[in-house]
Design a protein around this nucleic acid. Structure first.
Lengths: 223, 223
DNA sequence: TGCAATTGTTGGACGCGGTACACAAATGAG
DNA sequence: CTCATTTGTGTACCGCGTCCAACAATTGCA
C-alpha cells in the first residue's frame, strides 16, 4: 500500500503525457486509475462505509475535489468495471443483423456484453459485496443503471417492432425491457455468487433471459 | 397550509389517545400521518430536493430527530403508499390455492396486490416524479424494494417447485422473480404515466407480467 | 401516593457526501 | 507574449443521517 503522495518534486512530472495531446488546456495529471486502485485497496482494508472520499484522495495523492471530477459519486467506484462493459450495449444492439427477431437480437446483444466478463474479470464489488457491507449502496445505485439500459432496449424494441404500435405494444415493450434486464442482473448475481467454480458470465445470462425472451416474443408483435 | 405548531397549550392534548394503551411508556404524540401530510404539501410547493427534513418537521410541529423515529430516510416518504400495498404480498403469496401452478400463483398474488391501487389511489410520488425531480431518488431507493419483493417470490418459487432443485432451477427461479417484479414495476410506470385515463393498476400489471410467467413456466419445472 | 421502568421526544453535536465558487497551474493557438 | 481552455486545489457551505445525553409522559407496582 504505497503512498502515492508527492514522492518527487512535482507529481505531475511522472504523469505528464496523460492528457489527450490534441486538445488545449491542462492535461490530466492524476489518473482515474490511481483513484480506483486506492479505493480498491481501502475498501478491502476498511470496508466501503469505513472509507471516506478523503481517505481515497489522500492515498491517491490528489485533492478531494479532484475525486468528483472523475466520479460523480463515491458509489460509482463500485460500478467502474460494470459500466465499462455496459457501455458496449448500444453498439451491440445496433450491430445486430436485421434478420433476427427482436427478442433474439436483444438476447444476442446481451450475450455479447456478457461475453466481456469471464473468470478473470469479475467485478469485485459484486463478489465481495457482503464482506464490505455494500449491498445497500449497490442496490441504491443499481436501479438507475438498470433502467438506463432498459430504456435502450425499450427504444430498440419500439424501433424494430415497427411504427404500428398500440398502447398494449408499448406496455409489453417496456415490461420486456425491464424484465430481461432484471433477469440478466439476477443471472449475474448467481454467477458472482458461484465462487471460483464459475466460468464465463455469458451462459448464465443467456440461460437466465431466454425464458423472458420467449415469453414476450408474441406480445411484441411480429419481430 | 396550516402550521401545526402548538396552537393549544399543549399539543399532546389533541392527540392524547394515539398510543397503544396496553403498553407502558410515553405514547406517540405526533402522528406519522402529520409528517406525511406536511411532506406532501412541501414537496408540491418546493419540490423534493428543495425541501429539507427540517422544513417538514417544522410544519409538522415536531423536532427534526422525531422524523427519523418514523422514517429511516427522507426518501421513504415517497414510498409510504407503495410500501403499504407491498406489505400484503407475503400474505397474498401464502394464501394462494395449492392447485395453481407456481407462475399462476405469483400472478394471482401480484394481481391481488395491484388491486389495491386504483384511479383513486395513485402513489403521487410516481405521477409527479418528473415535476418534483425525484426520478434519481426514486431509482436509488427503488431497487432495494424490488429486490426485497423478488426475494420473497424467489423463496416462494423455490418452496413450491419442490426440493429436487438443481443449480439451473435456482438460476431460473431467481431470474423469474426479478423479471416478474421488474415487469410489474414497468407496468406500474406505464399506468402512472397514463394520466387521468388510467383505470385500475391490476390489468396493467397482469398484462405486463403474463408473458414473463408464461416464458419461465417450463424452466421452473413442474409446478 | 410515591417510585421504578419503559417509551417517546428533544437538543446538541458530529461525520460524511456532494456542490459551488474563485483562483492557480498547465497547455495549445493566434 | 497573450489569450482561451481545461484541469487541479482551497475554502466554504448545505443537508442527510447518526449518536448520545437529557427530559417528558405514561404504566405498573408497592
Amino acid at each position: 500500500m504505497p503512498d502515492r503522495t508527492r514522492t518527487e518534486s512535482t507529481r505531475t512530472e511522472s504523469t505528464r503525457t496523460e492528457g489527450t495531446p490534441g486538445r488545449a488546456g491542462r492535461p490530466r495529471g492524476s489518473s482515474r486509475a490511481m483513484l480506483e486502485e486506492a479505493a480498491a485497496e481501502l475498501f478491502l482494508e476498511q470496508g466501503y462505509a469505513g472509507t471516506t472520499v478523503e481517505d481515497i484522495t489522500r492515498r491517491a495523492g490528489v485533492s478531494r475535489n479532484t475525486f468528483f471530477n472523475y466520479f460523480p459519486a463515491k458509489s460509482d467506484l463500485l460500478w467502474a468495471d460494470v459500466d465499462a462493459g455496459l457501455a458496449e450495449l448500444p453498439r451491440a444492439l445496433a450491430d445486430c443483423p436485421d434478420g433476427l427477431g427482436v427478442t433474439d437480437a436483444v438476447r444476442h446483444a446481451l450475450h455479447q456484453v456478457a461475453a466481456g466478463f469471464g473468470p478473470g474479470r469479475v467485478p469485485w464489488a459484486l463478489t465481495q459485496a457482503d464482506l464490505m457491507g455494500t449491498r445497500g449502496v449497490l442496490e441504491a445505485s443499481g436501479l438507475s443503471r438498470m433502467m438506463k439500459q432498459a430504456d435502450l432496449v425499450s427504444r430498440f424494441v419500439a424501433e424494430r417492432a415497427g411504427s404500428g404500435a398500440g398502447a398494449g405494444r408499448d406496455l409489453a415493450g417496456r415490461c420486456y425491457a425491464m424484465a430481461v434486464l432484471a433477469a440478466a442482473v439476477a443471472a449475474a448475481g448467481v454467477w458472482a455468487a458461484a465462487g471460483v467454480s464459475r466460468g464465463n458470465l455469458a451462459p448464465y445470462v443467456d440461460a437466465g433471459i431466454a425464458p423472458a425472451c420467449a415469453g414476450y416474443r408474441d406480445a411484441l408483435g411480429a419481430g
